[in-house]
Write a protein that binds this DNA or RNA. Structure first.
Lengths: 348, 348
DNA sequence: CTGAAAGCGCTTACAG
DNA sequence: CTGAAAGCGCTTACAG
């Protein structure tokens, strides 16, 4: 019974891929030597090394990660853990920026990124055994709320992790990477002041998040440094959504009709503020200057384009990955604060 | 030499997790029996089963996935493969919706989602060996461009995959799940017609994508069915970006000042169109009705909120996962087309 | 620098 | 229904 062409092809396709043993046979060396070449080629003679490399290319050999993991006791992958109410983070324009940057940074280290969401208690319960069993070597943790229980789980599991942004309401030292929120806020308010604005309001972010807190601190600190008295009527607090930006702006305009500038703690909220201002028949920046925060994609797309503070997402992501790898290799925790940058467009 | 407390804790933390052997010892059965319980408990007596379950709970046993993979020859994970120019897809509001829905659908099957980007030729080259080595059991493929070479790679690797949307420029049968673009477009244009509009323009998507093509076909088909002659001046083609929507709308208004409605092939472009219309001093929907497509987050946030066609992302994702699992289990390819839904808001 | 061999933690025929 | 045993594909001391 002769095979038909399709049958032969089908069998060839499902044929077991070459193993280290096939490579060893082709190269005329032992399994151990092939493995040593795979590990970087230390303690291998140039000749053996070349023979192995040639065999690998010829056979199209790719290491079996499961087998490697089993012996090295390492998963060979890292989790991108979103421990946030899903809607909130997924609708955040910064999220995709971060996700992309982390994927790229990890790919450079040949580490697949496993995306895990754990916004609810039920999800956290489901994912905890997975993490405790060290099915990943480490975790990039994205969560902005005070007292996230996920952090306790990760600590208990002894799993290396690095947070994006300063985790609030945690005791002890934790690794995290963050932008310099306070300094960024101060730079924006200074910019508004230096361009001649005198009644500067602010729309802060949620006060249980580091960005919400620190950017408001920065706003107050800078005004104080310039001898400007506090006026709480100039402060509104949103939830980072576009709708809340719009509502806060309406509120501020009602309370302080003669305000001439507003520093908004996120671009998305700033975009909402823009709508409220225009709806009120005021012009940006002529009547009211608007400064955002993030330099997310919405900033450039806004009308007018937003002057904002750029968060260095690429650097934040790369640093998170670097810190995580260091921790996986046994290093202790570290805090990394990265500077922001004022991006001047048309809104202020 | 007595250990200090921290040392003891450190050792306890890095202690090897329990294996199937520990469970077997605790339950007083053999390794094989524990494994059978893990596989669903067939051919295991109730007593043995209970003893094993108790031991598992007591020890906090979690299966070692690497060991399992090694023997089952399955990776136990699935890739979410973004084979699209990164900027384009990551800035698409539908992307996060899809990503979230797929993560959830896979989690229900205890399959981790591995996020992989392969927008450039260099990335594709890097990722191909990983896929060919079956480091994932299957691929959810997101790519909208004609003739994506990734599809050839996946076929060659014999790796099960399901596409999101109909892949253009491919021969042979492929599994894909898509919304009924043409019917959706027809529904929107019908809605515009029935609400009394007479000069209906359209902003289509890129003509090398199924959505760009099919929605334009639907527009034309519906008009023809209603005996309305083609007028190519009423057709503009964008690239799905907000900016292109704005530019196309400006173009259309210049060419046909008396148009009274526009069907836009994506919400993001529709949002841009809104800006162009308002900038031209026309009102929506009073002067011009605007219909979008997607029902992405921008639709509800637009001013005025967009009337649009809802893509059933949750169903699309769930179906993609279901089809993929079926293929992994040996089933052949299938095409799934899901109906869309007209969502009436204020813009039309 | 190299090979032989143990062992990582599972699953799965195979006997019984 | 159950146990003993082979084997998945690697890495890594250990000798030499």
């Amino acid at each position: 019974m002769t095979d038909t062409a399709p049958q032969r092809r089908a069998r060839a396709r499902t044929k077991r891929p070459p193993t280290i043993l096939d490579v060893a046979a082709h190269a005329g060396v032992s399994r151990g030597t092939v493995s040593r070449v795979l590990q970087g080629g230390h303690n291998v003679s140039p000749g053996a090394r070349e023979a192995v490399d040639a065999a690998i290319r010829k056979l199209g050999y790719v290491v079996n990660r499961a087998a490697r993991s089993l012996v090295t006791q390492r998963a060979g992958s890292v989790a991108f853990l979103l421990s946030e109410t899903q809607d909130r983070f997924f609708s955040d324009p910064n999220f995709t920026t971060l996700l992309r940057a982390c994927t790229t940074a990890l790919a450079d280290h040949d580490l697949p990124l496993i995306l895990i969401t754990a916004g609810t208690e039920a999800e956290r319960r489901r994912i905890t055994p997975y993490l405790s069993a060290h099915h990943v070597d480490g975790v990039l943790l994205f969560s902005s709320h005070r007292g996230n229980p996920m952090i306790g789980h990760l600590r208990q599991a002894g799993l290396p992790f690095v947070c994006c942004g300063k985790p609030l309401g945690q005791r002890g030292t934790l690794s995290y990477v963050a932008a310099d929120d306070r300094e960024g806020a101060k730079n924006m308010v200074r910019h508004l002041l230096e361009s001649g604005r005198e009644r500067i309001a602010t729309i802060a972010g949620p006060q249980d998040t580091p960005g919400g807190l620190e950017r408001l601190h920065g706003y107050r600190e800078l005004l104080t440094e310039h001898g400007i008295a506090h006026d709480e009527r100039l402060v509104a607090v949103g939830d980072y959504s576009r709708a809340s930006g719009e509502a806060c702006m309406r509120e501020l305009l009602g309370r302080v009709p003669d305000l001439d500038a507003v520093f908004v703690a996120s671009d998305l909220m700033a975009d909402g503020a823009l709508a409220a201002i225009q709806r009120a028949g005021r012009r940006v920046p002529d009547d009211i200057a608007v400064g955002g925060f993030d330099d997310s994609p919405v900033a450039a797309a806004a009308h007018p384009p937003l002057t904002t503070i750029r968060q260095p997402w690429d650097r934040i992501s790369a640093m998170m990955v670097r810190q995580l790898l260091a921790q996986i290799d046994g290093e202790g925790p570290a805090t990394v604060i990265l500077p922001t940058e004022l991006v001047v467009r048309e809104s202020a």
